[in-house]
Design a protein around this nucleic acid. Structure first.
Lengths: 202, 202, 202, 202
DNA sequence: TATGAATGAGCCTTCATTCAT
DNA sequence: GATGAATGAAGGCTCATTCAT
């Protein structure tokens, strides 16, 4: 039906616009700092419309956070790449994705709301951190199965890798409003991978 | 002068009481969630007095954060302890200190206010994270100098250690309102140290 | 014309549905408490349609009140009943009708809107209270004409009767959200009638 | 203490001013129609101050209603007055008090809020209607004890009296925004009393 | 000096009513 | 003609900060 279709498309556009504006304001000013009226204005929508789409500020906030949390593609690795190069590429991709998503700022506001919205924080942690995590562990498990890596606790191993990288690049960014991917990260990543392979390579 | 002294001491007591109450409320409710009136009431002081001591809410906030940042004692290790045990003890102490200070909650509110108070965030990061960091690097450097560890970039090494431990215990706590020291952390710490020594021990 | 007829009937059904839904919501939540959107939803109609039928919330309100004001049937009394029994039956019917119509709630909202809708209040009072009144006075006048009652001011007499009954049952209900007919009202009614007959019976 | 006294007096003045302004606005516009901001402006006070004195609009409303409900003085009757004159005076006083207090408008807003504030309605009914009631029943009981009236159920008797008077004067006022005492009420009151004495006088 | 009352600006949310299709 | 989305104008309430004593 033409009318219905039209309405749906308009509605979806507004929905997306609100989400986008919400994301911008929440990231810039935090949860309490962002005003519903400002978000509505930014989305070129009335406050009432905003509240038709999201029944409360908190719901919009949750939607903004969940919206950012879509699947991350792990690119296929060339067959002829060395194990080291492959792992470096995977971890580098991890970092790139993180910064492309502006995940630092996002995590920042979620962290800020931990006392007020513990469920959201837990969900975000699980789906935004643990699940990315799991993907790497799966890769490690495959490599172990293929005999490319020594048998070891893949979760522990991944935490070693990711921990080091976060320590170098993500943790500082959390405190520095950094939004750009750090330069030369690959060098450090390679160094981390090298150590890892010294421990768990065959 | 006795009277003046008395007054100064009363004033200092109030100052401290406000700081303490501020710390409690900021940690519990975050920056925006903490109300000046509540903090004053908790400190048993009028709001006007609070504003005499700290000219704005933000100033109080900064003071609270800076106040939390006092020196951490690294306990002396027994001479006859093994290298592994020593390092485990140091890292365990790192974690214990973190949880005793309720540093997670503190970092949380600082992180939350990064966009609003970037200087505070930078300072906090430097004095609260980097400097603790530096202490460990110093220890590693000493161990290298003593020939107990292989020569290597001590900062890189420390980041490997601390990164893994944060990944296991601090990062999750950031999202979980956890205030208690995790149990059995020592097992994981020991595993991390073992790997580290496999890489850099002599 | 069949099509036109059909449309008119559909329209009338919607009109009635809106009226019914309006009645329900106004009675339950009062004038300000009732939301146009809720009434429309209840009537299974769009808000725009609601406003096609009633050009404002107030107009709908007036229509709801007027609609409730339909004729009340006074049942015929058996010829062989005693005067006392007859009068008790009439007054009892008065009360039953009141509660069956849920008149308490209706009067409540009209009373509430006296400052805002004085005309409606006056009309309601006249057509909903005075006219019921008049009917009883007519009966009394007939009884006087028949010589069954002593000559007296029938309006004054009816006010004595009705006043006592309202005092016992309707006035309290006005403050108590009561919607059910009080039990054993007949005993009090009979007592009132007895006194009345002692005064004005022959 | 001078300061404290001063503050208390200022505070009490504001409290009273808010109460008075609230009374005015609630009576004029009903509960939902009265805006906190308007009440505050009328009381020459900021909204925040209003909310310091009454923690919610509803609480202010309740206070307004309770405030109106202070004791009613029943004037002493001259010893040499006849029973009829005495009772007429008492009932007349009842009506006068009712209109002086502007009780009609007050009851109107309480009635309007019955669904939303049933407790207030119950309390108001008890303390504002039943207790005035009880006073008259006490008088009747005394008269019975003195042998001036025949023994009878004093509550029933009072309901007869009050019911008739309300029917004549209060019930219509409820629907008519009347704020002035009806004229010549005494004639009807006397007639009601006469009938009452025919029934229960000795 | 310390106080507690006072404030004005602002925030979240709702709702009667209109509009584009 | 009927719809559901959209709106602008409040409204209740809070809070960092100041002021009169």
């Amino acid at each position: 039906m033409g009318l219905e279709e039209y309405r749906r498309s308009v509605s979806e556009n507004k929905h997306a616009a609100i989400l986008k504006a919400g994301r911008k304001h929440f990231l810039e000013h935090g949860y309490s700092g962002a005003a519903a009226a400002d978000i509505a204005r930014e989305a070129d929508v009335s406050t009432a419309t905003l509240y038709k789409h999201f029944s409360s500020k908190e719901e919009l906030f949750v939607a903004v956070v969940k919206d950012a949390d879509h699947e991350e593609e792990i690119p296929p690795f060339p067959d002829n790449a060395s194990l080291e190069d492959t792992m470096v590429a995977v971890l580098n991709n991890y970092l790139i994705t993180h910064f492309e998503k502006n995940a630092t700022a996002l995590l920042r506001i979620v962290i800020a709301e931990v006392p007020g919205a513990p469920d959201l924080a837990r969900d975000t942690f699980n789906e935004f951190i643990v699940s990315r995590y799991q993907k790497l562990a799966d890769i490690v498990d495959q490599l172990i199965a293929h005999g490319t890596l020594k048998p070891h606790d893949s979760h522990f191993g991944v935490r070693l890798l990711i921990g080091a990288i976060k320590e170098h690049y993500i943790w500082p960014a959390l405190f520095d409003n950094k939004t750009t991917m750090p330069e030369h990260a690959e060098d450090v990543i390679r160094q981390v991978v090298k150590d890892y392979l010294r421990l768990y390579g065959t």
